[in-house]
């Protein structure tokens, strides 16, 4: 088993930006997006997100798994939250509205009445929800594919995280290949003893218990070697002085521009939302016209 590192240099304009500037950009954009339920504003973020995605030159093969996950997740959210259940987060969508489909039925023998009503508002809300979630997910989907894992430590340290914490993040990425190899060796050794992980047989409890012969040796081995690593680091006076990083990150003018842009977008969002009271749920009139016999 090999753990696939998702990063591969694409030499695109996106990768030229400082990772710190990109994290700040992504977080500020996400914070701004969650203030909106008005599709006119959300389309602006959708455009930015997908511009970033296309500028990253990612292939379908690279991101297929991520997109499948995102599409399943969004479909379930919209289907359960908006189409099937009648309640929603936004009061304007759930109260009243224009019915486009009504279904009434009675359960035989018990006589229970089932009422299902779908409104135009809820349909539009579902559409808005898709745009909003796609804007957020595509914003972050790009990150693992376009950020060099060797820069994580200096990135988080440069963003103000304490050096020990940043080093811990950096170290975790470095342990992955070793632990993946240990995992592989242990699995082979257990398989030689008749262990079958891939055979999904038996109940939930037996499936969980089946993983113990794999998890325990790998974890205990890792803990034992961890003690030695900690001792070695202490002997080398780890963190007794100010920590430096092999690769030094430097902001360039376009990094500042990106961060200023993100900051301006968030400030504008706060003004639009709290000051002007805009950005709440909105549905165009033409959408209502699409349905005949609206009540």
């Amino acid at each position: 088993m090999l753990v696939p590192l998702t990063f591969r240099p694409h030499h695109t304009i996106i990768e030229r930006f400082d990772p710190r500037a990109r994290w700040i950009f992504s977080f500020l954009m996400m914070t701004a997006i969650v203030y909106y339920w008005d599709i006119r504003f959300l389309l602006f973020f959708f455009f930015i997100s997908f511009t970033q995605y296309f500028l990253a030159h990612l292939t379908w093969k690279e991101t297929r798994r991520g997109w499948t996950f995102i599409i399943i997740l969004i479909s379930m959210m919209v289907l359960i939250n908006t189409i099937i259940t009648s309640a929603g987060t936004i009061g304007a969508v759930t109260q009243g509205g224009h019915d486009v489909f009504i279904w009434n039925a009675t359960v035989p023998w018990v006589g229970w009445n089932i009422h299902f009503g779908l409104t135009a508002e809820r349909l539009w809300f579902g559409f808005t929800q898709i745009v909003r979630l796609l804007a957020i997910t595509s914003m972050f989907l790009v990150l693992p594919f376009t950020m060099d894992p060797r820069l994580y430590g200096s990135t988080f340290s440069g963003m103000g995280l304490p050096a020990r914490l940043a080093y811990s993040f950096d170290l975790a990425f470095r342990f992955i290949p070793t632990l993946a190899r240990d995992f592989n060796v242990t699995m082979d050794a257990q398989k030689a003893r008749g262990y079958e992980m891939d055979k999904v047989k038996g109940g939930l409890f037996s499936q969980v218990k089946k993983v113990a012969p794999l998890i325990i040796p790998v974890t205990m081995n890792a803990i034992l070697s961890g003690e030695d690593i900690a001792d070695a680091m202490d002997l080398r006076c780890f963190d007794t002085g100010k920590r430096t990083w092999i690769i030094k990150l430097t902001y360039r003018w376009y990094d500042y521009a990106l961060m200023i842009f993100s900051g301006c977008v968030l400030i504008s969002t706060l003004i639009i939302n709290h000051g002007l009271n805009l950005g709440n749920f909105w549905m165009p009139d033409w959408f209502l016209g699409l349905f005949h016999n609206i009540k």
Binding site: R164, D170, L171, A172, F175, V200, I223, A230
Partner: peptide, 28 residues
Amino acid sequence: FGTREVVFAAIGAALYGVFAWATNVLQI
């Protein structure tokens, strides 16, 4: 959060990442 904790946090995260990735095939 000393040296020992730095190392074990990193080891724990790497272990959790590897195990969670490897067992994604087991669906309820």
